[in-house]
Computed example of a mutant assay.
Amino acid sequence: MGTASDQSSSTPRPPGPAQLAASGVFARALAVAARLGLAELTATQARTSAELAAQTRTDPEMLALLLHTLAMAGVFEIDGEGRFRLGEAYQALHGDHPQSQRHVCILMAETYDDAFAGLLDTVRSGRSGFRAAFGTSLYEYLAAHPEAEAIFDEAMAELARPVARALAARPGFAAAATAIDIGGGSGAFLRGLLDAHPHLRGICLDRPSVCARAAQRAGGAGDARLEFRAADVFDEIPAGGDLYLVKNVLYDWSFDSGLKLLAAARAAMAQTAAAEPGRASPRLLIVEPLFERESDAPRALFQKVICEDGTRGLDEAQLRRLVEAARLRVLGVERLDSGHTVLECAP
């Protein structure tokens, strides 16, 4: 057992106030590196800053400063000849990495970081910092800025793929024929389930602009069984599903908005059951990351800034209250390896 002095000397010291305040430099630098494709250029071969500047058509001096800045954080490693190679811990910055987070980094360090200009207003009032910074809500902003919305779509797909793999391993899909993903974005989550279960067909519900772009990009395995359908998921959700899915949606909205969405899902499930009395009762799978520890504070603060007024991170008890208010029954609770919790529900 080490002595107290041994333990204190091996414990990393927290950054000082000026260092912490300057940490945004690294976030923005990482987003620029992602946009320039520096991870792809250095993943398998070390290159000089001059070579990378020529390949990315950037200013050699400025790119060298960017690379050295990110090397301080371990994003790039520098060999004895001054060449840069992507660090092992940052392989997911590569767009083709199986767990790529390239677009997540761009979204977090650009649009979301800009929204944190409204943090003071959120802390003072509890209202959305995004609206304070941009004068509109997140989704209204995205609809008016197609390039930012495309980055958002790709980022959500990157976050969805590992959750789909974790959920697909769960029993309960064999008896289902149709899965309906409520607020499913570009369809990456649903596509992952269809790839794992070839008998399954899916319907992805989202805003018209999201569905139009996703349908244009469709073409991978499972896409022949995937339909995109524009819908106001707070008003009406189509009947006919065996499984209804809500993933990473409820924590983006206030209690009242979440209640409207779940009520619409319950109505769709009840309509499905009434139309075919002999059919197995539809199920709703709510897949959400819960907020249950003090260490979840940064995520909860993030939701308050980015999402609509009244949004809050939900723990299991709060999520259950929301489900019960929507007149749904919780049939079971399960934790996934992805860190998400699954509530299986029925009317």
Rank of each mutant, 00 (worst) to 15 (best):
V163S: 04
R165S: 14
A166D: 13
A166V: 10
A166F: 08
A169N: 11
P171M: 06
G172R: 03
F173H: 13
F173L: 07
F173Y: 04
A174M: 09
A175P: 03
A176P: 04
T178N: 14
T178K: 10
T178Q: 11
A179V: 15
I180K: 02
D181E: 15
I182A: 00
I182S: 01
G183W: 07
G184P: 02
S186C: 08
G187D: 06
A188N: 14
A188E: 14
R191F: 07
R191T: 13
G192C: 08
L193R: 09
L194R: 06
L194V: 15
L194D: 06
L194W: 08
L194I: 15
D195M: 13
D195R: 11
A196E: 04
H197Y: 06
L200R: 13
L200V: 13
R201S: 09
G202S: 12
G202H: 02
C204H: 04
C204N: 14
L205D: 00
L205T: 04
D206G: 09
P208G: 09
S209Q: 13
V210T: 14
C211K: 01
C211M: 13
A212E: 15
A212N: 09
R213S: 10
R213V: 14
A214E: 10
A214P: 12
A215H: 05
A215T: 07
R217H: 12
G219I: 11
G220N: 12
G220A: 12
A221G: 03
G222Q: 04
A224D: 14
L226S: 05
L226K: 01
L226E: 06
L226Y: 11
E227K: 03
F228R: 01
R229M: 04
A230R: 04
A231F: 06
D232E: 11
D232Y: 11
V233T: 13
V233Q: 03
F234Q: 13
F234A: 14
F234D: 04
D235Y: 05
I237P: 02
I237H: 11
A239Y: 01
A239L: 07
G240Y: 02
G240I: 05
G240R: 03
G240D: 10
D242E: 06
D242I: 04
L243P: 01
V246A: 14
V246E: 00
V246L: 15
V246K: 02
K247P: 03
N248L: 12
V249A: 07
V249R: 00
L250M: 10
D252V: 12
D252N: 15
F255R: 08
F255T: 09
D256P: 01
L259M: 04
L259T: 09
K260I: 04
K260S: 14
A263K: 07
A265C: 14
R266I: 01
R266H: 03
A268S: 07
M269V: 06
A270P: 00
A270H: 01
Q271K: 09
Q271Y: 00
Q271N: 15
A273R: 07
A273E: 06
A274G: 11
E276K: 15
E276N: 12
P277W: 01
P277H: 05
P277V: 12
P277Q: 04
G278I: 03
G278C: 07
R279P: 02
S281N: 08
